[in-house]
Design a protein around this nucleic acid. Structure first.
Length: 551
RNA sequence: GCCCGCGUAGCUCAGUGGAUAGAGCAGUAGCCUUCUAAGCUAUUGGCCGAAGGUUCGAUUCCUUCCGCGGGUACCA
């Protein structure tokens, strides 16, 4: 709708004999009484040609008034042009929602394209805490959104099951076994301090009693503890995600990428194309010829005795693996601690001929708030709140998702568990769900009364301001979805759903549907609330939030 | 030190080069013989971190400073 208006404005500007500027805006008018849309085009032109903006606006106004579906054009303030459209334009769009039903807002722009969304990917050295869990709803929603736009979408979790951290994890678990024979043994210096480590170690000792007794070598035992501990943690993470209503399609293991020789192959490819150097006993990624890549050098193969491969090299191999599996675009949802990883990944992918394949959505870490003080949280710090704790404390999964998704991923936030549990039932998500349930209830009560598919309603009886306001908001849905698919500002979607719910509740309060004054009005309103239901349901589906028929 | 992000109501956060800066929670006062009161109505609350600059117009863009977080690993 807005894009059509944009075309008309450009052509009106031309008719008024001005050059349309490239960067003017068309926005919703600040108040419905003023108009539907407002544009600053005249002021931008005025700035360019040093002329009076109101005069320019008046000339454009004359041209705009020639369009049939524009009923009022006004020049206001310093040179805004406020435009009011024929209501029929909105009714036509409403008819489209009713006609397309759950398909409204869907598109085929993604047809034939494959997207891989990688999210959570928490280190399997502990349970899923709300820092990592923040990426869950974000990744889930982004993946759903692309699916909605017709992309073949895969949701993926990458498990970093090898490397230094896993070694420390194994040592930490082993410690609680070793200490039983030797009370003086010290906890590993960079071990994982959380109490779950001791609990997990005891579970392992009990469950794998036989196996443990057969291993005598200390290093082998540590490896054993790491391996089974890892399986336990992955299972736990899987359960927790499921518990919170999130569904991962593919679980990929770093070890499998490495064992399949994919990391070695990537390193070899980079070597052949002249993108590596050897120094200090290690192999580095380096590309001094390209000014963009020149300072992005990073180690691929370590100088240690095993010449072990870095996380970076494995991650590169992993991303190429996703491309090999068919992904035309990869979206990674990464925590802020991966910030430093971005430039070298981009640089190396560019060197490998995949400069545009990777999009990264960065989210800031959640801080823990206790008695007014906020503190960083992490597995290595040992002071975190797990996702499960949050849910068990009374924050229902849908409320958690809404809470996370309604914020810009790039904004850090402070989480207060008690407050969250306390206010969970007051979470705005219920306001949205309630709107959906209310609609379902009305539709149920009026079943068989002209809501059938083939009955076109005469929408022109909808002339209440609340009805019009609701329609005007509903029809923004398709453009909003497409916008988010390019800017990843997912928080706009929950806010949109909330606004729809608010407009509906408002409408509900002053307009009767079943008891409407005339039959025509009742029918038109039934169609209006059906349209509202489709849009709400689609939005909630994308957010991975349940849309209940009853509450 | 250097690089990136953030700083908006008591709390948690939206928002934007434009016309009076928003929401939830918290507070105050009302509304259920009527399609679900998980709702509605009214109301309190802000030098949009500070100072400069660009602009017809800055909370938004630029510079400096302050505060917080992250990065600056042969951790992930």
């Amino acid at each position: 709708m807005k894009s059509e208006l944009l075309k008309k404005i450009i052509s009106a500007v031309k008719s008024a004999e001005y050059n349309p500027p490239s960067d003017f805006s068309v926005t919703e008018a600040p108040k419905p009484e003023i108009g539907d849309f407002a544009t600053n085009v005249a002021m931008i032109i005025a700035g360019q040609i040093k002329d009076n903006p109101r005069e320019i606006a008046n000339k454009i106004k004359i041209e705009l008034e020639k369009y049939d579906d524009i009923i009022k054009v006004e020049v206001a303030g310093p040179g805004f042009i406020n435009i009011k459209l024929e209501l029929q334009v909105y009714f036509d769009e409403l008819a489209k929602i009713v006609e397309q039903k759950e398909q409204y807002g869907r598109s085929e722009i993604g047809a034939g394209k494959k997207i891989n969304v990688e999210y959570v990917s928490a280190n399997p050295t502990g349970p899923l805490h709300i820092g990592n869990a923040r990426s869950g709803p974000i990744g889930e929603a982004i993946a759903n959104l692309f699916m909605f736009l017709g992309y073949d979408t895969t949701k993926e979790f990458y498990i970093n099951d090898i490397g230094v951290q896993i070694g420390r994890f194994g040592q930490s678990l082993y410690h609680w076994y070793e200490i039983k024979d030797n009370v003086d043994v010290k906890f590993p210096e960079e071990g994982y301090p959380g109490p779950y480590i001791k609990e997990t170690s005891e579970v392992i000792q009990l469950k794998f009693d036989d196996e443990i007794s057969k291993i005598s070598d200390r290093e082998e035992l540590i490896k054993f503890f790491a391996k089974v501990g890892l399986d336990i943690m992955v299972e736990k993470i899987r359960d927790d995600l499921k518990f919170a209503g999130m569904k991962i399609d593919v679980w990929s293991y770093e070890s499998k990428i490495a064992e399949a020789g994919k990391s070695a192959a990537v390193i070899e490819r980079l070597r052949e194309s002249g993108n590596t150097i050897e120094k200090e006993g290690a192999v580095w990624f380096k590309q001094p010829d390209d000014p963009e890549l020149a300072d992005k050098e990073a180690v691929l193969v370590k100088s240690d005795e095993n010449h072990s491969v870095t996380y970076f090299a494995n991650d590169l191999a992993y991303h190429l693996d996703k491309i090999e599996r068919g992904a035309t675009k990869m979206i990674d949802v990464w925590g802020a601690n991966h910030f430093g990883h971005i430039p070298r990944m981009r640089a190396a992918l560019k060197a490998l001929g995949q400069p545009d394949a990777l999009e990264i959505v960065l989210y800031q870490y959640v801080r823990l708030k206790k008695s007014g003080q906020a503190a960083s949280m992490g597995k290595r710090l040992g002071n975190f709140i797990s996702l499960r704790e949050v849910i068990e404390a009374g924050v229902v999964p849908d409320a958690f998702k809404y809470f996370i998704l309604s914020q810009n991923p790039n904004t850090p936030f402070d989480f207060d568990l008690e407050l969250a549990a306390d206010t969970s039932e007051k979470n705005p998500v219920f306001y949205i769900k309630y709107a959906h349930a209310r609609i379902c209830s009305i539709l149920e009560k009026s079943r068989g009364e002209g809501t059938g598919d083939g009955t076109p309603a005469d929408y022109s009886v909808l002339n209440n301001a609340k009805e019009i306001a609701l329609i005007k908001e509903l029809i923004k849905f398709p453009e909003l979805i497409e916008e988010i698919s390019t800017n990843f500002q997912i928080q706009a979607l929950p806010h949109f759903a909330y606004k729809i719910a608010g407009l509906f509740h408002d409408f509900y309060g002053s307009c009767r549907v079943i008891g409407a004054e005339t039959k025509q009005l009742k029918q038109a309103r039934l169609f209006l609330i059906r349209a509202t239901k489709y849009v709400l349901k689609n939005a909630l589906n994308i957010l991975s939030i349940d849309a209940p028929e009853k509450m």
